[in-house]
Design a protein around this nucleic acid. Structure first.
Lengths: 189, 189
DNA sequence: CGAGTTTGAAACCGATCGGTGTCATGAACG
DNA sequence: CGTTCATGACACCGATCGGTTTCAAACTCG
């Protein structure tokens, strides 16, 4: 009935790479990836140039869905404040899951160290898109210093998700007042 | 002249572990650690039970110096606001170094995933100490909700240092206004 | 049916992993 | 001087690393 078994080797590899590299870190072995995907190494290296490229491709594949889920609809008619808070609500929602380990696009960059790694480039792009969303919204909301406020929101986003990810923080009652205070300070409605 | 050569194998190992695990990640090999320390693997496993324990010990060894450097003197006579901003000034200072990769006590927890890892435990303790400093200072400063404000400051600390660490953010002009806005919102002088 | 392509299973490559064994050098100390 | 102990050098262990190769089963399509 479902398409579980029918997924192509490429899709299964991308999915396995996304899950395992998040759960266990980017150091997962290709053998573990292949086993989880039910695909041979032979096929992996036929579809991707290297493990690094597979990792990058798995991040890239998930990015549109993640962004669409995180951001409000482009035309939802909400105020900038509502639209910004929507993003943080989503982050708070995913952070309550026991398997949450923080924003994968941040952790990947931290684990890989090198900004040149293909997966680091993808992750950076996803973060930049979020920063640009914040920047556009706060400008629309009349922030006195839109650049500053957008950067502040990114700091809160990454800081809160990282601390929740390592189990240092329960986000309950934390994110919304923090974002609210920063929006208030910048005069955003 | 200097005591460089005279450092004990244990000290050299702790130092090498601190530097290499930060620069390259916790996945560094014991061979690389031994080579950097000028110590044989034989001696490593005589002094430490495992690579994990060496890693934890290296974090623990550096913690007092880091905390002393990060926090203001207990009796510096500054206001809570000044003492809190001192911490963020220090973080901003270390973040300008080109080799900065973010707060090592956060990155270690992210890389290790498991909270049970001995090095994760040490890192968590360092973070808790900082959180308690914030909590005491904001309470002294008359914050309306000291717990909330202390958690907010931790989020800003970790978020700002993580983003600077992955090269996503130049902290210039960002941290001080952010902390200031949060202190203002909570009525801290 | 037969030819060609895709795929997985698995052996294999050299390198490295964390960790242990042996042995010789070398300083410390009686 | 002789003994002891710390240490480094180095081979070695089984396992795994990323990546390649071989081979046969299974599939597609004429």
């Amino acid at each position: 009935m479902t398409t579980e078994v029918k997924a192509s080797p490429e899709e299964r590899l991308l999915e396995a790479a996304a899950q395992l590299s998040y759960r266990e870190g980017v150091g997962v072995g290709v053998q573990a990836l292949c086993q989880a995907a039910g695909v041979s190494k032979r096929s992996l290296y036929q579809l991707f140039d290297s493990k690094d490229e597979l990792l990058a491709a798995s991040l890239e594949r998930g990015a549109p869905a993640y962004t669409a889920w995180l951001l409000p609809a482009a035309d939802d008619g909400g105020s900038p404040r509502e639209r910004i808070l929507h993003v943080f609500d989503r982050m708070e929602t995913e952070a309550v899951a026991p398997e949450f380990q923080g924003c994968r696009y941040l952790t990947v960059q931290i684990e890989l160290k090198s900004p040149e790694h293909p997966a680091s480039r993808v992750a950076r792009g996803v973060k930049q898109a979020l920063a640009e969303f914040f920047r556009a919204e706060v400008e629309r909301g009349g922030a006195r210093d839109p650049d500053l406020l957008a950067r502040q929101l990114m700091v809160v986003f990454d800081g809160a998700s990282a601390r929740a990810g390592v189990g240092a923080e329960d986000l309950t009652g934390l994110v919304s007042p923090t974002v609210g205070a920063l929006l208030d300070a910048e005069g955003v409605q």
